[in-house]
Design a protein around this nucleic acid. Sequence first.
DNA 1: GCCAACGTTGGC
DNA 2: GCCAACGTTGGC
Length: 216
Amino acid sequence: MPPKRASLKRKISHCDETNEQDVLESVGKTKKKSVTKAEKNNTTKSFPREKSTSKPSACASQSYKHCFNDLQSSPNQTSSWDGVRNYQARNFLRDQMKPGQDVFFYHSNCKEPGIVGICQVVKEGYPDHTQFDSKNPHFDSSSQKDNPKWFMVDVKLVRPLKRFISLAELKGLHQEHLKSGGPLQKLGLFTRPRLSVQPITDEEWSYILELENKDA
DNA sequence: GCCAACGTTGGC
DNA sequence: GCCAACGTTGGC
């Protein structure tokens, strides 16, 4: 069964300005060069290429506490994606995100929201342990261990995008494509606002990937 | 099962 | 910090 693609939009609502800074500085560290403010929004590290033999699919995810730098600094650049507490997002995450799928990492809730990188699903949906932890912000007292409500997946960083693709840019294209019938006319980011885990079609995926090689 | 009230998300 | 767009809750 061929791996599928998923667009994964990761929330960083608990990343305040400082954390956002940390995120980007961490990128800089990884790159072993200093990063100017301007460059920071242009995440330009080239990592090993992602494999990309895929079919379209749907998926997305949210997490409050995970930022892009978490992923980069995690062992194996892999981390679990916990904290999804929306049923629609949960269903995408649990039922459609499968190992091997590529995923876009979207930064939201920050000064400049946009896509910053590519990840890959490495472990399919399994119960999110934070729902049972009363000290965790995502604790859900209504969830029972023998029948967990919430799930998470593990994702591995594939690479940052060659350049940051902002929400503003995507929105502009989306609006153009609404008139022209272009590939981003139904992009989940705009047709399912606020949903943190969203499907992406193969066509959308390829189109957005191409943007990487163009000027903003 | 409806729906008003309320809470949350996330762009701006 | 504001507010629109949702989602969830709970009374009925």
